[in-house]
Computed example of a mutant assay.
Amino acid sequence: MPATGHGRPRGRGMRRIIVGFVLLVLGAALGLGSAWAGLNISLDRTATRVGAWQTPLDAGGTDRGLYTRAVVALGALLALSRSETIYFIARADDQGEPLRGNCTYELSGRDLPARWWSVTLYAGDHFLIANPEQRWSFNDANLAREADGSFRLTIARDQAPGNWLPSGTADRLVLLARLYNPQGTVATDPATAVLPTITRKACS
């Protein structure tokens, strides 16, 4: 009888440990989620918008704000100072709908106003998307253009003709346009930049 009695407190103690661990994990997950939500809200409020694209004006340099520093630390997307590079981020299409991996999108436009530029596709967690083609971006050197100098770029899970970025199995998508040594007034006023349109074609 004494042996049976000794086993019960030990079992209750183990359950408490397991419950405490689960609560700790849930708390950490909720904390990170709320942090990302706060950062996104901050960017939405302070960024300059050009169509579906937005750029935080304090990206890079020692004068960047607290929230932008946090985005750099977590996402590693805004590394260089604004005097060298302007970054435009798109998390939605031209209609304001979030970019989703199960949809096909077309980016259309002309060369971005910079000495060198690129457009890179990320998953919603800001990591590159695994794909057999090992293709994550296009730039002004490898992008195929139309006869009039314009370009069309397709984002889709299934292979598409021409310029194609595979969205793989990602759920949410993020686009990042980098403008290195931006030209003309774009460096002083990013709102004057002419950037590609983002049109949703179909969803599965």
Rank of each mutant, 00 (worst) to 15 (best):
D148A: 02
R152D: 11
L176C: 10
L143A: 06
D171P: 03
P190T: 09
D189I: 01
A156V: 00
P190L: 08
G162K: 12
L179V: 10
A170L: 12
R152P: 03
A144E: 14
G168Y: 04
L153W: 02
P190R: 09
R157I: 01
T185F: 00
P166S: 12
D158H: 13
D189Y: 00
R152S: 15
G149E: 03
A170I: 07
Q183L: 14
Y180V: 11
V174H: 03
R145N: 08
G168V: 01
N181I: 11
G162F: 13
N163R: 09
G162P: 14
T188R: 15
W164G: 06
A160E: 12
W164S: 05
Q159H: 05
N163E: 08
N163I: 04
G162D: 14
L179M: 09
L175P: 02
N163H: 04
L179R: 07
S150Q: 00
R157H: 08
G184M: 02
A187V: 14
Q159M: 10
W164N: 03
A177H: 10
V174D: 02
Q183D: 11
D148I: 06
V174Q: 07
N181S: 14
P166F: 03
G149Y: 03
T154Y: 02
R152Q: 15
D171M: 07
E146R: 13
R172V: 05
P190V: 08
P161T: 01
L173M: 14
L173I: 10
A191P: 05
W164F: 11
N142F: 09
V174S: 05
G149A: 06
F151G: 03
P161V: 02
P161N: 00
D189G: 01
D158V: 13
L175D: 03
L143K: 03
G162S: 13
A144V: 08
S167E: 08
G168M: 02
P166E: 11
F151P: 06
L143Y: 01
S150K: 01
T185S: 15
P166Q: 06
L165T: 05
L176T: 04
R178F: 04
A187I: 12
D189R: 03
T188P: 00
I155R: 08
D171E: 15
R178A: 13
D171H: 10
I155L: 15
Q183A: 08
A187C: 07
L173Q: 10
Y180H: 11
A191Y: 01
A187N: 13
R172L: 13
R172Y: 09
G162L: 12
S150E: 00
E146Q: 12
L165S: 07
P182G: 06
L165C: 06
Q159V: 07
T188Y: 04
T188M: 09
P166G: 09
T185A: 15
D171Q: 14
A147G: 11
A160L: 00
R152A: 13
L165Q: 09
V174A: 08
A160C: 02
R157W: 07
R152T: 10
V174Y: 01
